Computed example of a mutant assay.
Amino acid sequence: MKYGSQFEKVFKEAMKSPDFWLEDIQLSFLDSLLEAMNTKNISRKELAERLGKSQAYVSKTLNACSLNLSLKTMVNFSLALGLKLTLDLEDLESPVVES
C-alpha cells in the first residue's frame, strides 16, 4: 500500500478497523476477478449467464457499487470462472507499507 507521509497516521488508525480490512479484501477480490475475466476472455454477459444472474447484477457488483459482498457471492463468482477462492492469514505486525 502506498500513501504519502501526511496520511500515515490516518492509515495506521484506519488499519485498526475491521471495516478497513473488509473493504480491502473486497476490492482485492474484485481486482482479481476482473483480471481473471480478462485472462480467460469472459465478458460480463457470459459471467452473468454462468451465474444465472442478470447482466445488471454482475455489472453492479464488478463496478464496486455493492461493496457488501458475502463470502458466498465471492465463491459463486469464483466458481463461475472455474476458480477456487482461497483465504490467507498474514501477520499484522509486518504489513507491506510504503511511505
Rank of each mutant, 00 (worst) to 15 (best):
E8R: 01
V75M: 14
Y57G: 09
S17W: 08
N63P: 00
A36F: 02
G4S: 05
L83P: 08
K16N: 14
L79S: 13
T39H: 00
E23F: 09
V96T: 07
L71F: 15
F11P: 01
L33E: 03
E98I: 05
C65V: 06
Y3L: 02
V75A: 14
T73E: 15
L51S: 02
V10T: 01
V96Y: 08
E98T: 08
K53I: 01
Y3Q: 03
F29I: 08
I25V: 08
K9C: 05
E46A: 09
Q55S: 12
E13R: 14
M37G: 00
K40C: 00
L69Q: 04
S59P: 12
S32G: 10
L62R: 11
L89H: 07
S59G: 11
T86N: 15
S94E: 12
F77T: 09
D24N: 08
L83K: 15
A64L: 02
R44Y: 04
E23L: 10
E35W: 01
L92S: 10
D31G: 03
S70V: 05
S78F: 11
V96E: 08
F29M: 04
S78R: 12
G4I: 01
A80R: 02
L33P: 04
L33N: 00
K2N: 15
S94P: 00
E93F: 10
P18F: 04
A48G: 03
W21R: 02
L83W: 00
L85H: 10
W21P: 02
L33C: 07
G4Y: 05
Q26A: 10
Q55R: 15
T39A: 03
M74D: 13
Q55V: 05
Y3C: 03
N63A: 11
V96W: 07
T73Y: 03
E8V: 03
S59V: 11
V58T: 14
T86I: 13
L71M: 15
Q26L: 05
K72E: 08
D24E: 09
S5A: 00
K72L: 05
Q6W: 07
A80D: 00
V58Q: 12
G52Q: 04
F29P: 04
